[in-house]
């Protein structure tokens, strides 16, 4: 006891206190904001559940048949985007971190980061004006020659504004996020691991396969989830590019595509009134739930992989 009382009191400076407090406030602010959004969504969504939905597009019998195709479209478009973006992002990140000469790598990294600064409405315009007309002949060829594969079945869209085009636009939009994170993770690979692999006679590809990728796996999953989050919530580009319909369909090249929740809100909110507004907000709540679920699943994956990742 005596030794403890004799000890000098730890000095707590004013700066320490102010800083601790401000971080606490910043931390709680995010929770408050999240709670505020969640409460708003739930309160506004409740009237929609029993609402008369016959006024809505496609005259659905109830709210769930209305939101079903939208929820499907949201997840489907984001999944396709991820399918395109992740392999590309891994390739670019590996090139920058392990293959490219230093100067080129830096330049390339800047260019990729620049992509993230392009507003989504510009991607939307690019999708309509450049991408859709450019890919339409390819789509036509695909339906003519590979139409026997169900997802490529016709009739082909005359404008190319299909869910595949949307997925490509989304992939370009999420590419910088995934690439930037993947690059950082790959650069963190312990030099000793890499050198050990090379010393054992591994080629560069084998070194990447044995040392870099296992180390970066959980980081890569987190990166993909961040990208997925943006793809799920992307509004403007989808609203502009997609030719939407009220269907659940896996087909990639037709005019009738499932719409996404965010894009559907953007398209219908300006003229919505009465319970129509509540229904749209309720679909927003569903999007909120989907995003949450995706994040939880991703966290679970990251947590489970941690012990095998070689990061320890």
């Amino acid at each position: 006891m005596t030794t403890q009382t004799e000890r000098p009191k730890p000095v707590i400076r004013l700066g320490d206190r102010v800083f601790a407090r401000s971080t606490l406030i910043a931390g709680s602010l995010i929770l408050v904001a999240l709670a505020a959004v969640a409460i708003f969504l739930i309160v506004e969504a409740i009237p929609a559940l029993g609402a008369d939905t016959t006024e809505l597009k496609g005259s659905p019998s109830n709210f769930w048949t209305y939101v079903g195709p939208l929820a499907f479209g949201t997840v489907w478009a984001a999944f396709l985007a991820l399918l395109i973006a992740v392999p590309l992002a891994v390739g670019i990140a590996l090139f920058i971190s392990h293959y490219a000469p230093r100067r080129l790598a830096q330049g390339l990294a800047y260019v990729i980061d620049l992509l993230a600064a392009v507003p989504s409405v510009v991607f939307g315009l690019w999708g309509i004006k450049v991408l859709a007309p450019a890919v339409q002949p390819v789509y036509a060829w695909l339906t003519d020659n590979l139409g026997w594969i169900p997802i490529f079945s016709g009739p082909v869209s005359g404008t190319g504004r299909t869910i595949l085009t949307v997925a490509i636009v989304l992939a370009v939009m999420i590419l910088p996020i995934i690439t930037a994170m993947a690059r950082e993770v790959f650069l963190q690979t312990p030099k000793l691991h890499e050198e050990a692999a090379l010393a054992l006679g591994a080629t560069r590809w084998e070194m990447v396969k044995m040392a870099v990728l296992p180390f970066g796996r959980s980081g890569l999953v987190s990166a993909s989830i961040l990208g997925l989050g943006r793809a799920l919530g992307e509004t403007m580009a989808v609203a502009m590019v997609l030719s939407p319909s009220t269907v659940i369909s896996f087909v990639l090249l037709q005019s009738e595509n499932p719409n996404t929740i965010a894009s559907n809100i953007a398209l219908n909110f300006p003229e919505a009134h009465g319970t129509g507004v509540n229904v749209l907000i309720a679909t927003g709540l569903i999007l909120f739930v989907i995003t949450f679920a995706v994040n939880f699943i991703a966290r679970a994956i990251v947590a489970r992989r941690k012990e095998f990742s070689g990061a320890n």
């Binding site: 496609g58 005259s59 869209s157 504004r161 997609l242 319909s245 005019s255 219908n268």
Partner: peptide, 10 residues
């Protein structure tokens, strides 16, 4: 709202 599911939307 356009009532039919067919066709192209913009």
């Amino acid at each position: 709202d356009f009532p039919y599911t067919g066709g192209e939307g913009a």
